[in-house]
Design a protein around this nucleic acid. Structure first.
Lengths: 138, 138
DNA sequence: CCCATTTGGTTAACGTGTGAACCAGAATGT
DNA sequence: ACATTCTGGTTCACACGTTAACCAAATGGG
């Protein structure tokens, strides 16, 4: 627990100081920039991020105000919204991503042996599996 | 990252549903219940939790309103405050703690081999060390 | 002793996450 | 076709964390 608290605190601070992005912002931009044409239906993005829909809605509103994303009504489904990354958002994530990756290497990956890395993945998978089983049981 | 998100989400939900406690509440009560006479100076509690002082102040205010802790002025240092666990808080943590421990076992510890467990601790220590080094560099 | 600094703590403003209520548009069943 | 239900999204009220400003009591060097 302490390890993870420390890790995300560090990572988020770097992101914030260097690019003015929160971890949440980063994830949104990352998913959008990987999507075809940099656009996604709101609910698709929500599923990728595993976020509450109200959270997504509010966060996108703020990101829109900052000019990082834009929203249009969906043609095929009149109630739906399409979220698109803006040029500004696109530029930002292109700068942020490599630094972010470097940070993760620097603080975590580079200090672990191959065995430790592999073990960590195994553990993560096991836990994910267990959590999925519990969630499925409702 | 996903593992840890999933873990704390699960743990917090259990705590909340069964006892009406947040993870933060739990930690406060846990530290207080382990302190002599169930009382601590505010800043001591803050150091144990590694919390911002404003966060602590506000959280204690809410917990006080819910009758989980009480606050008195400190005799030795006139500006200081002493936080004490109330009988109600004490009862709650006594119920919550064993369930909490059981949850952690159920979702994490029981599914790992001894080797995996040991490795996880090693990794945690390495990361903590690295983070401390970075923080020290300011 | 006195002024400057430090320490312990609270408060205010803001950004953010959660759950519930709500609304419009789509899908479904009879 | 029409009423019901489901889905995609927004909005509201509230809990929470952070930063900065602030205050009072303690400390410490001259």
């Amino acid at each position: 627990m302490k390890m993870q608290d420390g890790l995300s605190e560090f990572i988020e601070r770097q992101l914030r100081n260097r690019c003015g992005l929160s971890g949440a912002d980063y994830q949104v931009l990352a998913h959008l920039s990987e999507a075809p044409e940099g656009r996604l239906r709101s609910f698709e993005l929500g599923q990728l991020l595993r976020w509450e829909k109200s959270r997504l809605s509010q966060h996108l509103g703020r990101m829109q105000n900052r000019g990082l994303v834009s929203r249009e009504r969906c043609l095929a489904d009149q109630r739906g919204a399409v979220v698109a990354i803006t040029p500004r958002g696109s530029d930002l994530i292109k700068v942020a991503a490599p630094q972010h990756v470097a940070d993760v290497r620097d603080v975590l990956i580079d200090h672990l042996t191959a065995t430790e890395m592999a073990m960590l993945v195994t553990i993560g998978d096991k836990v994910a599996e267990r959590l999925a089983a519990l969630e499925h049981k409702h």
